[in-house]
Amino acid sequence: MTLSVSSQSRARPSWLAEQSNLIGLAVIIVLFWVLFTSLAPGFVSSFNLFALSRSLAVDIVIGFSTMVVLATGGMNLAIGSIGVCAVMASGYLMQTIGLPIPVAMALALLLGAFLGWLNGFVIVRSGVNSFIITLASASLFLGGMLILSKAQTFNALPPEIAAFGRMRWGFLSPLLFVALGLGAALIVLFRFTALGREILAAGANPRAAELSGVPVGRAIIIAHTLSGALAASAGLMLVFRLGAAMPSIGQDWLLPSFLAPVLGGTLLAGGFVSVVGTILGALLVTTLRSGLLVMQVGNFWLQLFLGLILLFAVMVDRYRGVYAERRSLGRKNPRQTSGRSA
């Protein structure tokens, strides 16, 4: 079963449509910044900007983690579970075993990549929908982590961890630059490498890709492996930020992981990703969260706003798609517009 919106919008959006989406998103973000700054001057204080840059870094990488799987037309519900597994593994390796920080971090990233690979492998081999496999594996990974760690927080990590988390480059946290660096690497992957092209081709039209010699199964497995590694990176960023490895990390990642790429114009149907869009999508989410916090609306209403914004964004996207379809009706056959799971 494909989770296509409609077969027409599977086509890669035109360059112009993509730019208009990004510009629209940027305008919305600027409007919110103006709004929050005028309502609550504390919003642009250096303290708040620093806090914002730290959570933005995590939101961006969580978004990337879902984005690379959306590229194949699949989804990964296990991002939070993989993230927390990597977090707890890093905590165990640093605090209990006493491994040096870079080694522990590298092993934790490897674990994340391995769990992602496992997802991809089972999805490809069983031919079962990625939704179900990752729903089950999310529970499996989280349960396994809780059994092994007994839900104990590792809070005696080397002091360098928290120190790096507090470090400032100007107003911003170095973590944000790590996230942007990952974004640059992903742009290179999807724009300039054969592998990135294969992943997108596998998502756009698996059968056509298979027939033209693209190893679709391999592309899906690699995308999931990458997703696992990115989820682990997001988890490790939180370890730096919190200065501790907590078993509660990752449990609220599901919504933001889809918000950032979907707001940014990445297609759920696969075949098209927007790295810059995902960064802007994450920026919008972080801006809202931080702004509402500064205005003391509190966390309670935040969920409602995020939900409504996601609805608004997908609808705008949908109507843009309908408009594009109408314009191209003359050239394309509109017969298949109603996908089976629309």
Partner: peptide, 26 residues
Amino acid sequence: TGINGFIITLATASAFTGINLGITES
């Protein structure tokens, strides 16, 4: 809208939870 039910219900889930928490403050 013809949008995938996954995304729609993910969004409405967040909205419903938001209303719940906004009213009760937990």
